[in-house]
């Protein structure tokens, strides 16, 4: 028997690692992967709560989060490819045209 707080602490660790990845990496593809890691951590917490409360709502929310993640990846990767075509780089430090 695993206490539910173990799952939640693991979810918090994975979410923090994802947030750290967004902060420390400069490659926009790796930043995007870190966002996926954060979504996964949130999903893990949802499923753990589903198991505690014995209701399906958490699993259904995970299902919707997966659909939104798929849509996000399709649009985001298209954006990255378009940015690479115009700037020849995916380094976010070089994408500073909007900085004023």
């Amino acid at each position: 028997m695993v206490p539910v707080s173990y799952y939640l602490v693991l979810s918090a660790i994975l979410f923090s690692l994802g947030a750290l990845g967004v902060l420390i990496r400069r490659n926009s593809l790796v930043i995007f992967m870190s966002i996926e890691l954060m979504l996964n951590a949130a999903n893990l917490a949802f499923v753990a709560f589903t198991r505690v409360h014995e209701t399906f709502s958490g699993q259904i929310f995970v299902f919707f989060v997966m659909a939104v993640a798929a849509a996000e990846v399709a649009v985001g990767l298209a954006l990255i490819v378009a940015i690479y075509r115009s700037r020849q780089s995916v380094d976010i430090d070089q994408l500073s045209s909007l900085k004023g």
Binding site: M1, V4, S5, A12, F15, V52
Partner: peptide
Amino acid sequence: GVFLVIQRVGRDVYIG
């Protein structure tokens, strides 16, 4: 995050 988990959920909630 860990503090909130321990404060709100507690360590004694086991999965049935």
